[in-house]
């Protein structure tokens, strides 16, 4: 904080404050620089020696205006940038962690969307959907992309979306109302064990299970991209076997099951 002392120290303090404010500006700390200039302006106006120095007051006010313009430009600037194909490819590559090709392809497209590369992400998702890869996840992401792009397509997209392969669609339609799944683990710490899960939610061929925090070791075996061979699915009318893939894993943020793991499993056709 600036304080009024002798004439010399006042001058020194003004110089020091100017130096500080200017340095903050060069460091890109625009708000902090503006604050410092405002503080200085008040100091000058209250000073017996400098309050009549209109030239100094004008110079500080000019600096404040310049900073306010820069701050506004920054705040109104784009939150994202359309990147070159090379950089987009790099993003896809750097933010893909799954071992399976299908899950990795979805993950790469999700990464593009998260970095605001919606048009490229849309191309990728539409191609994945046409190939019938994780259709629920890809379809949801197509809608998310359109919503983020704030285009009118968002409301019209569902009927216009490319259709997944017919055979797969039929298989999805056959999967109805699954109340539980049995998963046999072929690797990891639970190798050879079969664990039963209740299905908490189902959307088309994707079922969601919830695993409590004290079963973390089980949740750890179900990372996105994990293939689940020969799962047993229980429905009120039948029991059938199918393969599946872990399509999403999240931690529940609120409510009575806060902290538990929500895992989505996409059931594949045989």
């Amino acid at each position: 904080m600036l304080s009024v002392k002798s004439y010399m120290s006042e001058k020194e303090q003004i110089k020091r404050a100017l130096r500080e404010a200017s340095l903050y500006k060069t460091q890109g700390l625009l708000e902090e620089s503006r604050e410092k200039y405002l503080e200085l302006l008040n100091y000058i106006r209250e000073s017996q020696k400098f309050s009549t120095n209109q030239e100094l007051i004008d110079a500080v006010e000019k600096k404040i205006k310049e900073l306010e313009k820069s701050i506004q430009e920054f705040e109104q600037g784009p939150k994202t940038l359309e990147l070159s194909t090379q950089v987009q490819d790099l993003i896809k590559n750097l933010f893909t962690f799954s071992n399976t090709d299908e899950a990795a392809a979805v993950e790469g497209a999700v990464a593009l969307a998260k970095f605001g590369q919606y048009e490229r992400a849309l191309e990728e998702f539409q191609s994945l959907l046409e190939k019938g890869i994780m259709p629920v996840v890809t379809a949801k992401n197509i809608i998310r992309c359109y919503l983020s792009m704030n285009t009118p397509e968002a409301g019209e997209i569902l009927p216009a979306m490319p259709r997944a392969k017919t055979k797969r669609k039929k298989a999805q339609q056959m999967i109805i109302d699954i109340s539980g799944v049995s998963i046999r683990f072929d690797g990891g710490p639970l190798k050879g064990q079969t664990v039963d899960f209740d299905v908490d939610f189902q959307s088309s061929n994707t079922v969601s299970i919830v695993i409590s925090t004290n079963q973390k070791h089980v949740a750890d075996c179900l990372e996105p991209g994990t293939r689940l061979e020969d799962m047993q699915c229980y429905s009120p009318i039948t029991v059938f076997r199918s393969n599946g893939i872990v399509s999403r894993k999240a931690t529940i943020k609120q409510g009575p099951r806060k902290g538990d793991y929500m895992i989505d499993i996409t059931i594949e056709e045989d």
């Binding site: 890109g28 625009l30 820069s70 430009e73 920054f74 600037g77 784009p78 994202t80 940038l81 993003i91 970095f115």
Partner: peptide
Amino acid sequence: TQGDRTLF
């Protein structure tokens, strides 16, 4: 982005 701030 502008002002040399890291965007991503």
